[in-house]
């Protein structure tokens, strides 16, 4: 554990709390892509199956439970409790175009060919692109509420901080995991355009609005 990893995890946790709090307080999930949230639940479910096979630390186990529980809670809020506010007309990204290639790639490029390892690899690949339905939705409507922007910024920062953590770990332990690193870089790059808009607009008090 190092400062980059810890702040990365905290950014991830803050993102989830911002999202749940926004939906709960406004009693609405307008502007939120249910499809991205379904992909995140699939990511955590396939990655954290190792909860039953390998123990790392209390911290790891606790965070895995939190990520799993909150991802399913988010899906419940979007598809059940506040279903009437779900903007499904704008949430039209075809998620099979992300799931199937991630699965195919996980079967082809992995560290070790067994059930848990392929699912772990699938979760890494899928996570790198899981935000696309949400970014697609923002681009379709041409705008995002400030709170949704804060959510996206925290969520994007998490993997960027993990990249610093991987550099640090390589320097101090000689540890590296190419699959996680390449996917993490792809994931962070997908947020770059958003980061630019966030810094130049949202932080200056303006609404995130895309040029027409």
């Amino acid at each position: 554990m190092n400062i980059f990893r810890l702040t990365g995890d905290l950014a991830h946790l803050i993102a989830i709390i911002i999202l749940l709090h926004k939906i709960w307080k406004s009693r609405s999930c307008a502007g939120i892509s249910g499809k991205s949230q379904v992909l995140f639940a699939l990511v955590y479910t396939t990655r954290y199956l190792d909860l039953v096979t390998s123990y790392v630390s209390i911290y790891n186990t606790f965070m895995k439970f939190v990520f799993l529980a909150t991802s399913y809670a988010t899906i419940y809020l979007i598809y059940v409790k506040f279903k009437a506010t779900y903007d499904h007309n704008h949430d039209t990204f075809r998620i099979e175009f992300l799931i199937l290639p991630s699965l195919a790639l996980a079967l082809l490029i992995n560290h070790y060919f067994n059930f848990l390892e392929v699912l772990w690899t699938f979760s890494i690949y899928l996570e790198s692109v899981a935000i696309l339905p949400q970014l697609f939705m923002v681009s379709k409507t041409g705008e995002a509420e400030s709170i949704t922007s804060h959510y996206l910024f925290a969520l994007g920062s998490y993997r960027a901080l993990y990249i610093l953590n991987w550099i640090y770990r390589y320097a101090t332990e000689g540890h590296y995991d190419l699959i996680a690193i390449v996917a993490g870089v792809v994931q962070t790059v997908l947020y770059c355009d958003f980061f630019y808009l966030y810094i130049t607009k949202v932080l200056k008090g303006k609404k995130l609005q895309l040029p027409a």
């Binding site: 990893r5 190792d50 390998s54 790891n60 560290h111 953590n165 590296y176 995991d177 996680a180």
Partner: peptide
Amino acid sequence: VATHQGHDEL
């Protein structure tokens, strides 16, 4: 090098 015995990150 990645360990195959389990992943220690989230």
